[in-house]
Each structure stands twice: as C-alpha cells, then as structure tokens.
Design a protein around this nucleic acid. Structure first.
Lengths: 93, 93
DNA sequence: TTGGTATTTCGCCAATTACCGAAATACTAG
DNA sequence: CTAGTATTTCGGTAATTGGCGAAATACCAA
C-alpha cells in the first residue's frame, strides 16, 4: 500500500491515471499528452505498474496501459485506516 | 489536493494520522510513539497541517493535534477522479 | 527575571525523485 | 538482414525529502 500512496504523490502520475480512466492508451499516445520526455513518462509508468495502479499490454512494439480499478477499494479501505470515525468498528458488526 | 497526496506518501505521516484517529494527542505524546527526533516529527506535523489533514490546538506550551476528518470526502472524491468507472458521470444524474 | 518544559526552527547530510538526452532493446515490414 | 518505429533503460543533474542535533522560540511557575 505504501507503493500506491507513493505513486499517487506525483501530480503527473495522477494525471496519467485520470487519462487512463477515460480509456486505455499506448505509451506513445500518453506521451503526446504530456510535455515530458518519453523516458520520463516511461519511468512514471514503472512506478504506477509497481503499485498495481495500471496494467500493461504489449502488442508488437506498442505497449498499451489501462487503469487497474480493482485496487480502488483497497485504497479507500486504507483511507479508512486514518479517516474513519472511531465508531466505525462497532458499525461493522 | 496535491498537498494531501504528498502528505499521504510518507508512511510515518500515515501512521501519525492513524494514531490521531484514535484520539487527539500532544506533540510530545506523539513523539513518544515514534522512534524519531522531535524535530523530525515537527516537520511531519507541518506537512500534515499544510495539507489540512490535522488541526493544531495550542494550550500554553503544549500543542495538541487532532485529525481533520472533514477532508476525507474530498480525498475520496478525488480518488474518483481516476478510479471511478467511466459510467460514473451518468450515474450521478 | 530565571529556570524548566514543550515544541519548533535551522543548518547539515544522505537518500530519493523527477527530468533530460543518449543508448539500448523490442518488434516488424520490406 | 536492414531500416524504421515504439518504448525502455541508463547515466547524469538539480531539486526535494526525511532524518539528525543544536539552537531558538513559546510559555509559565517560582
């Protein structure tokens, strides 16, 4: 979970996730949307992959990334770790 | 919102929030719970304060910190920015 | 005012991070 | 195999970050 929060700390990576929320895109398409070097974007993809926030799909020389929404609940659950009211434990009964 | 995600990126700060979720505590009490220099903890409090994640209450020489749960919904809402299914826009109608 | 306690600020350091351009890798049509 | 495209890896840099100890600040009882 630390990886996820670390990944979300960077605004560019959050923007990448926002874009992928609309639809999956190739590395090239993503790089066209950001004023950054392709190598930089590649590094960001690695961080997001390591955090399981995106999924990579290789087709020939093209790599497509899509959002991994299944981690969403995990993130929210962990947010409850420090944001939920103290009465939460009882309410779960 | 960038401040919040930046604040949440550090495990120590997340732990601080977890502790404050149980109950508010003074800077000294918090520092007793972490194997870190008081100055380091003070730095962490500053980050959390800047992100509006905690609220500071001064009483004499004692400073008490408590969790600011009102930002929780904001955080979750922003999580929807990149995690919500693409159908969300319609469902909000 | 002094001394003691509570806490923050400051200066320094090592590690990490985001960014870049060049080089390398992966793939494929011709 | 070659050339071209797609993408990543690599090495370098500047900025940021988390940690520390010392100094400074804030407060208050005596």
């Amino acid at each position: 979970m630390n990886e996820i929060f670390k990944a979300l700390a960077d605004p560019t990576r959050r923007e990448i996730l926002r874009v992928l929320r609309e639809q999956e895109r190739s590395a090239g398409e993503l790089s066209d949307l950001f004023p950054l070097a392709k190598s930089t974007l590649s590094g960001h993809f690695n961080v997001l992959k390591a955090a399981d926030l995106i999924i990579q799909d290789k087709r020939g020389t093209t790599i497509t990334y899509c959002l991994n929404t299944s981690v969403f609940e995990d993130v929210v659950a962990h947010l409850f770790d420090f944001f939920a009211p103290r009465e939460t434990p009882k309410e779960t009964i």
